[in-house]
Simulated assay, not measured.
Amino acid sequence: MKRTHLPLNGLRVLDAAARHLSFTRAADELAVTPAAVGQQIRALEDTLGVVLFRRTTKGLELTPEGEAGLPALRHGFLQFEESVRAMQAGQSSKSLTIAAPRDLTQKWLMPKLAAIAVADPELRFVLIDAGEGVDFAQANLDLAIHWGEGPGEHEGEAIESDGMVTIERPGGGSEVAIGWPGCIEDDAAPLLTVADAGLAIEAAAAGLGRACVPELLTRADIEAGRIAVHGEPRAYPQGYWMVAPLPQWRQKKVRALVDALAL
């Protein structure tokens, strides 16, 4: 069914003028001039084809037509307020949906979220495997983390790291390369090729060779003594980015999450 175009500005002015029975006091409430209130009322009367106010010796009076519409109008404004509160409720929600590559989720994101949850036990997280890409429109996401040279089409912030590192089993092991789509250690054919950096780390920890992986993913395993760094970290054009479309990026809960993850 086609909806009637509603002159919402005029109706808002009508509500204020009817409550005060004064264009001047209505103008003060709405932060406009009395002349602007009068123009809105005249335009509304032209649109509706009825007279809404009459000036008398006692002041401004509503006509019967104006009186007849006020209860439904005020109920409608209350419904608008309820609608706005419902839409804003998501910003104060304690639920966050995050998409990230599986290896990043396992090696870095889950420990981060565990620490964040300790600080705010009411938080709830939904984690989605980013795979080869995410669609914010379809997945109802709050935030995504991707590997790339920038935020792409969205707003974003880089996760700080030392770039790429070459890792091996502590004490040394095979010196052959472990390959994955992000990096191989040298030009020789790798002994083992795996799907992602997380598996490359596990292969290196098992002594199958050396892997070139994002430094960000190695921190917990280095601290635990499972792997060791061979050589120095090196800069790399790609890295992990926290991204979201502008409306999500502006939400307080998303900004708080980004700030917490960046620590």
Rank of each mutant, 00 (worst) to 15 (best):
G76A: 13
R55W: 08
A203Q: 11
T166Y: 01
R234V: 09
Q238A: 14
H5D: 07
E168K: 07
G59D: 04
E65F: 01
D187I: 12
Q39D: 02
K112Y: 00
I184R: 06
E155I: 09
A130S: 15
L123A: 03
V32R: 09
I227N: 01
D259I: 08
A117D: 10
E160Q: 14
G173W: 06
R250I: 05
V243L: 08
L257D: 04
I167A: 04
T166S: 11
A158D: 01
Q138C: 00
G163R: 07
A35T: 03
V165N: 02
F23M: 09
R210F: 05
F53A: 04
G182D: 07
P7H: 08
D103V: 07
E149Y: 02
G225H: 10
P151S: 13
Q248G: 03
L261A: 13
D142W: 13
F125I: 00
T4S: 14
A189K: 07
A203V: 10
Q251Y: 00
V84I: 14
S93C: 11
W147C: 08
A31H: 04
A35K: 06
A89D: 12
T56F: 15
D103C: 15
A18N: 06
H75V: 08
V213H: 12
G209S: 02
L78K: 14
R124H: 13
A36G: 05
D221A: 15
V126Q: 09
A204N: 02
D103N: 10
A27H: 03
A206D: 04
G198E: 00
I128A: 12
A100G: 01
L141M: 15
P181G: 03
